[in-house]
Design a protein around this nucleic acid. Structure first.
Lengths: 359, 359
DNA sequence: TATCTTCACTAAACCGGTTTGCTAAACCGG
DNA sequence: CCGGTTTAGCAAACCGGTTTAGTGAAGATA
């Protein structure tokens, strides 16, 4: 019946209080420029009218939005299915809130990240997993907003936060080779856009390099056929492991690049009537909160997820607030292997070994 | 050295292309009002200048932001520590993306949710767990933006999505009473703001009602001393259980109102050298993705988390897009008990029973 | 008493777009 | 060849605020 109440504008308050728009603006933003009683009166009128400054108009004149964006090259609905991202967001949100910034999530709009970016009203962006071979990276950068990259170092002119992927992965590999394992399956995370070749600077490549270094130390290589990728979720892990299994791979250890995938892999292995770590050992990556609580408690590479998010925001805010793009900071956080119960010594060769598999 | 490049404005494009601002605007928004070749020329110039319409200015004139907000009464950094919220966000994000809407997270700004709200540039809000006894709820509603409530029915003039909390909780209680349990500990989720009394319409109250109904069926009551609350996280569960234990409670079953808390409780119980479900049974609530994978697989009340988020967005968008506040829709989604391995028959009375505890 | 400040407030320009109302030229049928 | 319609594009108003550059009166200074 009654149409939505039109929100009062600054002019309404001005008229009602018998002052100019300027005075109303002052009453809110610099009350000291008004006689105290005038300021109070104006704010009373505003309160009573239910007036509140229109945030969009305010953004326009102040030329800033007090908002930072979190840019993800994949749909949020897939990103959020990885528990890692929840923890990362926790770090981002904590640092943003602390500085009074709002949080806006930017993900591809009708297939285009650049389009989503141009729609976004943010003062700066934390981009997670945006590799420099992303087809739209140039357009995104041309938007001219400050960017901090997480998990991709490729663009040195922007600040960045990364972790020691290679070191962490190597430690994982050394751990399992030390247990006698030689037959490995690597489960990697799918790059957001199917590039022609695998981005050599992406997380997957870096961690793979670490795994290979670890195996190289005992004179082993990890052939490409032993590497399978999928989305970083439980489902992705299940699918990846089953695919490998159907391809005839019979690893004694699975190195997964995300805990969610590791958990999925464990599920799939169990469904194949295998025990962990009796028949197959599994190592994850991330050390999400739940890693110690799954069955069995997951051996994994710990990374400081929350801190990664928080640091990224702090880096971003220094350039946003100082308008100072010069010599951006690159920060690398440490990783470390956490040995729990999903890894154990290589099992004695099984009788019913499948012909032709893994030598 | 070089200051940040000033982004080109519509007037720059107009001048460069030798047309009016109007023409440029048309070239982007209604190209059919221009001669085809003119439209193309203008867009070429724009492209070459790196022009992209200023999103804030556009919002101002179009009087809409193409963004929806997710309102949480607690800090995002605490909200995100509950895996439930990741899944919920997944649902929200999926539905929002599908309709071309951006996602903005609104959480208290310097202690005030209303302040955060007035800063937020959104066309509508999905409010999760906003009870009507929240001190700022009136101010928030006065902002006049469409709101859909999730997990709180208290404001019938807004659309809402809820679940059958009572039924789910009752089923959980019936399950454990059926196993012979009588000594219960309820672990509830802390309301966002410490109200004077417990909000009778909050999730915690509703689920507690369900538990009580289940126990009432076997002639038992759950006294208030058997109910302890805390933040809905693993840590919160650990703390809650330990607190109860120190208070001398020795339950044979723990009913937790969130899986995260249930997992925390299991951890704490193990650290007390108790087995699950041998010594103590545990039931969760939510059925997060990881619930089947923890040790032991968690018996819990399933709720359609993603769908809850998606439905809320869809409800919101119908009122946002139709500008139609009339007879808002209230949707209730089903819950169901999923029995896994964290519950079992009540154990035979232990020898070393602590004097004075639980009869 | 004349001039200089300070104080309290305002009119107008501006932020960067979109939209409305209009005009001049091209087109069209009779 | 003339009046009527369409087409292509423009000037100006507008969205809802903030900020700049004053203005007039009161108080301070010489």
């Amino acid at each position: 019946m009654e149409q939505r109440t039109i929100r009062p504008r600054i002019a309404d308050v001005a008229r009602e209080a018998g002052v100019s728009k300027t005075a109303v603006s002052f009453a809110f933003n610099s009350p000291d420029r008004l006689a105290p009683e005038t300021a109070v009166r104006i704010r009373d009128v505003a309160e009573q009218l239910g007036y509140t400054p229109h945030p969009v108009a305010r953004m326009l004149t102040q030329r800033r939005t007090q908002t930072i964006g979190v840019l993800t090259p994949q749909a949020l609905s897939v990103i959020f299915s990885n528990p890692f991202f929840g923890a990362f967001s926790e770090g981002v949100a904590g640092a943003a809130e602390e500085s009074g910034y709002g949080l806006y999530f930017i993900s591809p709009l009708r297939g285009s990240l650049a389009r989503a970016m141009s729609r976004a009203t943010v003062d700066g962006v934390v981009a997670i997993g945006l590799s420099d071979d992303h087809p739209e990276v140039e357009q995104i950068r041309r938007a001219g907003v400050p960017i901090v990259l997480v998990d991709s170092t490729a663009l040195p002119e922007h600040g960045s936060v990364e972790i020691d992927d290679v070191g962490g992965a190597r430690a994982a590999a050394e751990h399992v080779t030390g247990l006698g394992h030689r037959d490995v399956l690597v489960i990697g995370v799918e790059p957001p856009v199917p590039s022609l070749a695998m981005d050599p600077d992406g997380v997957t490549s870096r961690r793979l390099r670490g795994y290979r270094e670890g195996f190289a130390a005992v004179g082993m290589t990890i052939p490409d056929e032993r590497v399978v990728v999928g989305p970083a979720s439980i489902e992705g892990g299940i699918a990846a492991l089953n695919r490998a299994w159907e391809d005839g791979l019979r690893p004694t250890v699975v190195l997964a690049m995300s805990d969610a995938m590791a958990i999925g892999a464990m599920r799939a292995l169990r469904d194949l009537r295998l025990t962990i770590p009796g028949d197959v050992s599994v190592v994850g990556f991330d050390d999400i909160d739940l890693a110690p609580h799954v069955d069995p408690p997951l051996t994994t590479v710990h990374q400081p997820i929350r801190r990664k998010g928080a640091e990224a925001v702090r880096l971003l805010l220094t350039v946003v607030q100082r308008r100072d793009q010069a010599n951006p900071e690159h920060r690398r956080l440490e990783t470390r292997l956490i040995v729990r119960d999903s890894t154990g010594p290589v099992p004695a060769p099984r009788h019913e070994e499948v012909a032709g598999a893994n030598h």
